[in-house]
Amino acid sequence: MRQYRILLVLLLEILIVSLISDAFFTMTNLMTVVRQVSMTAIIAAGMTVVIITAGIDLSVGSIVALAGAVGAGFMVSTDSVAVGILVTLAVGASIGLINGVLITTQALPPFIVTLATMVGARGLTLVYTQGNPVIARVEEFRTIGGGSLLGIPVPILIMIGVFILVHIFLSRTRFGRYVYAIGGSEEAARLSGVPCERVKVLVYTISGLLAGLAGLVLTSRLASAQPTAGSGWELDAIAAVILGGTSLMGGSGGVLGTLIGALILGIISNALNLMNVSPFYQDVVKALIIIVAVVTDSRLSKMAAQRAMRRQ
């Protein structure tokens, strides 16, 4: 239900922006918007899974930088694109695994653990790169961020693939169901035989892996890994998740809403650019739109809950 409401917001937004700007509703511009959105959207897909378990992952932005830098370093030193890709993804997944293990074995709040790894991974990136970009100018590698297939940019294809896989994971697999159960009530889930610790470790590993994947796309697009890459992306991802109707309390939501949420945020930026609004104002406008959307949504869902209550 929530996802349909947010889809309505997206369509309304597209309509309004098309009326305001002729340049908006063109194939080239639309592709640009989606391509720009793709990396935070990939992260937001993993973030959705984490937030459904009533957790949070603040480390994803730093993982983008660390995974990208270490992966680029290995690619250059081994002169192998495959090694570079594998290392990038492995670094991302490893940080996620560390998050998951710390959260479950030490019974620490996810906010604290991922805050620490956020700072730590950023620090490691600076140590590894000595503050300089890692140049990764390998021709075959550029297709990931810059190529296209059948006229569609590869990052968009990767994003679509990620969302389809995560959607199937959440809605049709055993572990997906466990994710919702843990977010709804961890104790009730445990007493129904859900291996809560294993599921949570898996969830943070997925989030780390997808952050690594976003780092891979970014490195490829820029042909280099920047030590400051991904700063603040965790917040963009969380914003997309919340806009998409996934509750921070856990137990409900889904990845389709998140995709729409990410697109809404991307279109706002794009529209403000097309309208020549100073970049200084853009974040303020974004913030207002997030607040309005979330307030409206919470009102509507309260009404829906009351209706459900009356029906039972």
Partner: peptide, 9 residues
């Protein structure tokens, strides 16, 4: 409510 069922599901 807290342990028998996941009440949001």
């Amino acid at each position: 409510k807290a342990e028998g069922l996941v009440t949001g599901l």
